[in-house]
Amino acid sequence: MQESEFQKKEICKTGIEELDVMLGGGIPIGSTVLVVGSSGSGKTTLCMQFLINGAKQGERGVFFTITEPLFKLTKNMEGFEFYDKKLIESGMVNLIDLRIISERLGLDTEKYTVEDASALLDILRDIADELNVKRLIIDSITALCYRLQTPEMIRDFIFKLGSSLAAMKCTTLLTSEVPPRKFQYSQYGIEEFISDGIFFLGDIERKGDLIRTFQIVKMRGAAHSRTKSAMSISSKNGIELAPLLRSRE
C-alpha cells in the first residue's frame, strides 16, 4: 500500500504521543487490536489510557472487564493523573463487568455454548450501538476465549465482534494474556490472526533489572514502526515510550 493511501485513512489517536508517532498518526478507525503481554506488563493501563484520552476528545468508550472487579479496576486507575472520575460519571467512559452481564443473561459462567456466545455477542454489539461508543476494550479476550469451547467458536466470536464494531467505526482493543518471556501472542493461537493489529508488551533484562518494552508487531492499514521501544508507566504520565538502547548487554 502506498504512503498516500495510509494517510487517507481515518485514524483514532491513542493520545500516547510516541505511540501515535509509531503508528503513523494513530490506529486506523474500526480496527481490532490485540494488546499482548504477561501479568503486570501494562495492558490494562494502556487500554484505559486509550479510552480516557478518547473521552477527553469527545469519543465515548466502554471498558468490559472479565479479569477483575470494577472496584479494583477503578482503585488502581485512581493513582494515574490521566484518570478522570468525571468521565465515568458523565458516561463518556463506561465500565462494565462482563461477568455480571453473563450472570444476568443466565449464561454458564465457566463454559459458553454456541447460543451463549451468540447472546453475549449481541449484548456487546447492542451496548456499543446504544452508547454510540467509538472505543471499546475487552480485558481480557483470553478469559473470554477460555469460556468459548472450540477454536471455531473463538474465531467466529472475534471475527463477528470485530466486523460489527468496525461497521460502527468503533476501534477495539482486546487484551491477551501470555506467559512471561514467551514469544507468543495469545493462549489459543487464533486471536492474532483475526485481529488487525498486535501491540506486544514485554520486557528485557538488563543487569538483573527488568526494562519494559513495547513493539507494534502488526497494524493493518498503517505504515507503522516495527522497532522495539522502552516503555515506562508512571502515575504522572501513564504510558510513555522511548527508543530502546540496544548496545550489547
Binding site: 538483573g208 522502552a230 510513555e240
Partner: peptide
Amino acid sequence: IESPTMLEKLGLEVMN
C-alpha cells in the same frame, strides 16, 4: 528512578 540501569526512563524524566 528505580535503578541506574533504567536509562530510557532517565531520559524520559529529564525531557519531561
